[in-house]
Amino acid sequence: MVKIAVVVGSTRPGRRSKQVADWVLARATARGGADFEMLDLADYDLPLLDEPMPPSLGKYQHEHTKFWAATIARFDGFIFVTAEYNHSVPGVLKNALDYLYEEWNNKAAGFVSYGSAGGVRAAENLRLIAGELQMADVRAQVALPFATDFENFTTFTPSTAAEEALEPLLQQLIAWATALKTLRT
């Protein structure tokens, strides 16, 4: 069975990404078809990229990078839960992606975004980053506007549309993660 991480892509105080990631993880686990696990960037002490060699060489020198690499290597796919900050992804998520290369290669990626316009610009930025990291991003995505999916713009209350959008994302992600696993073995 493939292993998929639900990545909490913000560490900001008062972040909404943990609420959204908890929902994704609960729905995904109940659905089944893969082993799902939470991966909260707040639990990793990754300073701004401080490796002297390009990640594509895989010559990591710092223990925090080696630990991060071993963590990411365990997974076959990822659901990135991201806020939209200034029409893009939170810096902490970009930094975490930039640390590694081979550990991301030939793995599936799906996106659950949120923000004033559903976070769609952050998801589009992630698609570009995923492509460069040789990840296969699935077409289905979940976009959560503050106006419809967050009570008082703070408490996550998924709409029927959000609930319905998650299933195709999970279906596509599991299929692609399963298919891509054969490229890595």
Results as ranks from 00 to 15, higher is better:
Phe75Glu: 07
Thr178Pro: 01
Tyr114Asn: 06
Leu57His: 14
Val81Ser: 09
Leu180Thr: 00
Thr178Leu: 02
Ala147His: 02
Gly58Trp: 11
Lys66Phe: 11
Thr11Arg: 14
Met53Arg: 15
Ala28Leu: 09
Lys18Arg: 14
Asp40Ile: 03
His62Trp: 14
Gly77Met: 05
Asn106Tyr: 09
Ala109Leu: 04
Ala179Ile: 01
Gly14Pro: 08
Gln61Cys: 10
Thr11Gln: 13
Asp98Met: 08
Asp76Ser: 02
Val142Met: 13
Asp50His: 09
Leu180Ser: 04
Ala162Lys: 00
Leu39Arg: 04
Leu170Asp: 05
Ala177Cys: 09
Arg31Tyr: 06
Leu128Trp: 04
Val89His: 01
Ser159Asn: 11
Phe150Ala: 04
Asp45Pro: 08
Phe146His: 08
Glu37Trp: 07
Phe153Leu: 12
Ala26Gly: 07
Gly9Ile: 05
Leu180Gly: 03
Thr154Gln: 15
Asn125Arg: 13
Gln141Phe: 05
Gly58Phe: 07
Arg127His: 07
Ala108Tyr: 00
Gln61Pro: 07
Ile79Arg: 06
Val24Leu: 11
Arg27Met: 12
Ile129Gln: 06
Asp76Trp: 01
Ser10Gly: 10
Ala26Lys: 10
His64Cys: 06
Ala108Ser: 00
Val6Asp: 12
Leu133Ile: 02
Val8Tyr: 04
Glu84Ala: 03
Leu128Val: 06
Ala96Trp: 10
Tyr44Ile: 14
Gly14Thr: 06
Ala122Asp: 06
Met135Val: 07
Val20Leu: 12
Trp23Phe: 15
Glu102Asp: 10
Ala42Thr: 15
Thr178Ala: 04
Arg139Leu: 12
Asn106Gly: 03
Val6Gln: 13
Ser88Gln: 04
Asn152Asp: 15
Ala147Phe: 03
Asp98Leu: 08
Ala34Arg: 02
Glu51Gly: 15
Phe36Arg: 11
Ala109Gly: 05
Phe80Gly: 09
Val7Phe: 04
Lys59Gly: 07
Asn152Phe: 11
Leu100Pro: 00
Lys18His: 13
Thr154Asp: 12
Tyr99Gln: 11
Leu144Thr: 02
Pro55Phe: 12
Val120Ile: 13
Phe150Thr: 08
Gly32Ala: 12
Tyr85Glu: 10
Tyr114Phe: 15
Ala136Met: 08
Asn125Ile: 05
Val92Tyr: 05
Ser10Met: 04
Ala30Lys: 13
Thr65Tyr: 13
